[in-house]
């Protein structure tokens, strides 16, 4: 069985290490915050100017001056800090943020990512995505392995306008966990009930299978 969005988020949460500063993108990445392992202390960065993002507020705590980068109302927690947008991207650019989790429309087997523009459709803008992928030390992409037509989104080369080059380090899709290596996508774990043959059939980019490939624990 392919993973649910929640299971993808839960698997990515296992990559979090104690003391990490983490930026979570919109969509599946946001769900990662729900699965931070016990005993692992991470600080969430919101690029509109907050470190130490807390949970959504209760109705009577809603504050129009306190939102995340997805414009949702949020809360602070003890230890939170506010700053302006230049400092926010400064800390990203300077490599202070340990991990960025993003969604993607396409990922290439050399680590290129496309997630901001579909030509001939309305272009809404890249927001902070280009800054994040250009600078983050470690980028994990959370995505569906194929598009609704069943076509692979793990490609030899991105067909959509790219957001950044050679930047993705790891992909967690609904079918498996892959490192980006010089040989292309390296399958480390497959989802329970998903065969390696199915993953091969649904991966258009170069694919190698890790010697110690195993079934994912979900």
């Amino acid at each position: 069985m392919a993973l649910t969005k929640e299971q993808i988020a839960r698997r990515i949460a296992q990559e979090l290490k104690d003391g990490f500063y983490v930026n979570l993108g919109i969509g599946i990445p946001t769900l990662v915050a729900n699965y931070i392992p016990e005993g692992v202390d991470v600080v969430l960065q919101s690029e509109n100017g907050l470190l130490g993002m807390g949970p959504f507020p209760y109705e009577d705590e809603v504050d129009a001056d306190l939102i995340n980068a997805g414009k949702q109302t949020i809360t602070t927690i003890p230890g939170s800090a506010f700053f302006d947008s230049a400092m926010s991207f400064g800390m990203i650019r300077a490599g202070k943020v340990d991990l960025t989790v993003l969604g993607a429309m396409e990922v290439a087997d050399n680590g290129d990512i496309a997630n901001w523009k579909i030509p001939k459709k309305l272009v809404k803008g890249m927001g902070g995505a280009m800054d994040l992928v250009a600078a983050a030390k470690n980028i994990i992409v959370a995505m569906q392995h194929t598009n609704p037509k069943g076509e692979s989104k793990l490609l030899p080369k991105c067909s959509l306008p790219i957001t950044g080059v050679h930047c993705v380090k790891k992909v967690v899709s609904d079918l498996g966990v892959f490192d980006i290596t010089d040989e292309g996508f390296k399958l480390l774990e497959y989802a329970p009930g998903v065969t390696i043959d199915e993953i091969k059939a649904k991966t258009a980019g170069r694919l190698v299978i890790a010697d110690d490939v195993k079934e994912m624990e979900v």
Binding site: E47, D84, S85, A86, S88, F89, G90, I92, R93, V123, G125, M126, G127, G128, A129, M130, D131
Partner: peptide
């Protein structure tokens, strides 16, 4: 003109 968010902030800075 669409520009990356950090670039926008840093150009203002």
């Amino acid at each position: 003109e669409l520009i990356p968010q950090g670039t926008l902030a840093t150009r203002c800075m």
